[in-house]
């Protein structure tokens, strides 16, 4: 078991370092020097070299990579004297156009994206597992037919279409929901939720489809499984048997959720766009538009970090749910 945990954590750390290396070599190694954008229109070569040196983009990829990793733990300093800027640990790079370290930029946007992703996750799990379980228990019934159709629709319709649809239906036609804007949770929890209901629905609409399917099939399998028949044979009630069947469903659901962390973040980018929210996705896009590589790299790596941590949590949760993994 300890070996298992150690191996998972080791793999996660290794993955992060590898992704960082690939990202940094791709962006800082292969693309145009970002110093060119910073140095202004008439850009004599010596000014550009100075800017390059200041931004530390004139160094080798390997050097930048080590600096970046070091920066994560101890922070990083650019330039010297009056022009010196310090980027505190954990430093995800420094955005010169914004005159701010990327960590701060991320921290500003994170609440939006996290609210979006976590809320959508909760909603899609509740809806997906709930509908899936109901359809399995009353197979062929009204709920089953509705949610099977719903799952089909959700799996086949592109995200942006759903987004526009929800904006149309709820935002304009019913005039019920705000269709853009963000209110922080600490400011007003109700307003926070009120503003996010739209994006939550869009995001979870797409993801819930998968959970409906998995829950339904898995629960149907479980319910006719011999060990649950055997449990009934021992005199257990239907309620007790159903409760036990849920365990068998949790394992694939957790496994699927780990994979969906990626989809959730990806979906957030789109949902932010549709609902004009200023989250991480928006930050990333602005970074791309302004050729601000520091932001692109920083946000990419931070997202990778989130995804890998999500997977790590799932990996560590699995053995708790399934003794066959725990004691393999």
């Amino acid at each position: 078991m300890i070996v298992y945990i150690a191996r998972r954590i080791f793999t996660a750390v290794f993955m992060l370092l590898a992704i960082a290396f690939v990202t940094i070599s791709l962006f800082f190694g292969a693309s145009k020097d970002p110093a060119r954008a910073m140095c202004g229109k008439p850009c004599p070569p010596e000014t550009r070299a100075k800017v390059s040196a200041y931004m530390q983009t004139d160094q080798s990829v390997v050097w930048q990579y080590t600096e970046f990793v070091k920066g994560l733990f101890v922070g990083r300093t650019y330039g010297e004297g009056a022009q010196q800027v310090h980027c505190h640990a954990p430093c995800f790079g420094y955005s010169f156009p914004n005159r701010s370290d990327v960590t701060t930029l991320i921290a500003e946007r994170l609440p939006v994206t996290l609210s979006l992703a976590l809320g959508a996750a909760v909603l899609c799990l509740v809806v997906g597992i709930g509908l899936g379980a109901l359809s399995a228990i009353r197979k062929g019934g009204a709920v089953d037919r509705f949610s099977t159709g719903f799952a089909m629709f959700g799996l086949s319709v592109p995200t942006f279409l759903v987004g526009l649809l929800v904006v149309q239906v709820f935002g304009f036609m019913l005039n019920a929901l705000p269709y853009s804007g963000f209110v922080s949770f600490s400011e007003s929890p109700t307003d926070w939720a009120w503003h996010l209901i739209g994006p939550w629905m869009v995001l979870s609409f797409i993801l819930a489809a998968g959970y409906i399917r998995v829950t339904r099939t898995q629960l149907l399998n479980e319910l006719s499984a011999d060990h649950l028949v055997a449990m009934t044979a021992r005199g257990a009630s239907t309620r007790q048997v159903n409760r036990h069947a849920v365990r068998g469903v949790m394992v694939p659901v957790v496994a699927m959720f780990a994979l969906d962390v990626t989809a959730l973040l990806g979906g957030s980018v789109i949902a932010e766009r549709v609902f004009s929210l200023h989250g991480l996705g928006d930050l990333l896009l602005s970074g791309v538009n302004e050729s601000d590589l520091s932001i692109v790299v920083g946000v990419t790596l931070f997202s990778a970090f989130l995804i890998i941590v999500g997977n790590l949590i799932a990996d560590l949760l699995m053995p708790l749910l399934d003794p066959r993994i725990r004691r393999a």
Binding site: A225, D226, H227, L228, V229, A230, M231, T232, A233, R234, G235, A236, S237, H244, R247, G248, L321, D322, P323, R324
Partner: peptide
């Protein structure tokens, strides 16, 4: 429910699938 398990019990062919993988 009262009858099952106390009046009449069952042993299955496939002992692996007759036991829950999640319980000791």
């Amino acid at each position: 429910r009262r009858a099952r398990g106390s009046d009449v019990a069952m042993v299955f062919q496939d002992s692996m699938s007759a036991l829950s993988p999640y319980l000791d």
